[in-house]
């Protein structure tokens, strides 16, 4: 497998998980850069070109509330989970844990079977 193929598959694998990571991080209010920093600190590296449009999309879907605030002499748009977003995050978390358990079991089986 070429590096390009691997990169493409990694990107596909991460795409769905990023939504979950962003929603989970926005239990507390964050502005764009601070959210990115929090995700990076948590081990999820995401570039600005992906993160900022993603937050806006989630806000358009009413999963996030947002407001402009003045801080450190500059305005920033803060995002936080909405009621709908909180409910969805709960469901997605259950789904993720279920998937993770199933996948862990599958991956373990595969490892044992490999000579």
């Amino acid at each position: 497998m070429t590096t390009a193929q691997l990169d493409k598959m990694r990107l596909e694998l991460r795409r769905g998980v990023l939504v979950l990571a962003v929603l989970a991080s926005l239990k507390q209010p964050h502005y764009g850069y601070s959210l990115r920093k929090q995700l990076q600190d948590g081990g999820i590296d995401i570039d600005e070109g992906t993160l900022y449009p993603l937050i806006r999309r989630l806000a358009d879907q009413e999963l996030l509330d947002s407001e402009w605030r003045q801080a450190e002499g500059r305005e920033r748009r803060y995002y936080q989970l909405s009621e709908l977003g909180t409910s969805l995050l709960g469901q997605l978390t259950d789904e993720w844990q279920h998937l993770n358990t199933s996948l862990a079991s599958l991956l373990a089986t595969k490892t044992q079977e490999t000579p």
Partner: peptide, 12 residues
Amino acid sequence: IGRELKANIMDQ
């Protein structure tokens, strides 16, 4: 979007 992009770039 311009306003938000500016805020994000300034943070960076």
